[in-house]
Design a protein around this nucleic acid. Sequence first.
DNA 1: GAATAATAGTTGATTTTGTAACTAACAAGA
DNA 2: TCTTGTTAGTTACAAAATCAACTATTATTC
Lengths: 150, 150
Amino acid sequence: MTDSNNAKKDDFDLLNFLPFLLNQAAEESSLEFKQIYKNRYGMLRTEWRVLFHLGNYGEMTARDIGEKAKIHKTKISRAVRKLEQRRFLKRIRDENDRRVERLSLTHQGNSAYRELRTIAWNYDAKLAAQFTTGEAALLRMMLRRLAGMD
Amino acid sequence: MTDSNNAKKDDFDLLNFLPFLLNQAAEESSLEFKQIYKNRYGMLRTEWRVLFHLGNYGEMTARDIGEKAKIHKTKISRAVRKLEQRRFLKRIRDENDRRVERLSLTHQGNSAYRELRTIAWNYDAKLAAQFTTGEAALLRMMLRRLAGMD
DNA sequence: GAATAATAGTTGATTTTGTAACTAACAAGA
DNA sequence: TCTTGTTAGTTACAAAATCAACTATTATTC
């Protein structure tokens, strides 16, 4: 290893380390929105994610949601149970393949979805407004790449 | 609310929602590094963060670390205990203010830090290599802004 | 200088997540 | 058809994060 490489490593700063930076940005930038779905709707993160998927894409199975959003099936299982208990979604056993449940929002679930979607949309706009339109677009592209979503 | 606003909201996609995107990118991009500090060093996330702070900035108090990295004091307290048990750090009671402990790495802790720092540095370079130098710099800037670090 | 408030750090109880093992249903090959 | 493997989803147990209450010490205020 050369001297210049050592010099670079001495410069290494945790606060510039991408995994750390990403994590801090993710936490900080979801705080305010979290307050809303947590305090106002009594939801956990996975719960609103499931709600959003069903609201956005319509009927899906737990497996579909897990694949699309890379959420582990045990998390989804628990979120689905809670949303069902709160009458936000209903399950229908698929008679062609009885292992599968087709999930969809109730009327109540759909109302909650639309309210939260509006809040989320405004919240996202507020975050993005810190940057130019081009920067924000580039940011989303880079995040998708880092997340392995392309 | 106008029709065009409704049209925009109908387009709203969880997968483009910044808090979601940031979280996915954070998780995916730290997975490989996590394997290393977890499996090879038996460390938790907060533990390597504390280790990195002490390695990078020298002697600090638990409070200093928490403030710098926005980590809650109970997490730090537990991480410090574990690092102390593994003889990676030592505490010295500050005699000017006996509430405070001054934390610093042992020789062993410093070795671990330097090994992990090299790995982290290479890992960061690998992540950043997905982008141009300018893009990567912009990304870090944007993340710092989102994280409230400026 | 005694009472009250504030700060550094710890501990315990509760909630949430992660991991692995499990059930039930379907699929495929011998 | 039997048996072996795979898939959808659940459950149980362990690990970790969160939140509130706690001790010990220092600072403030009357």
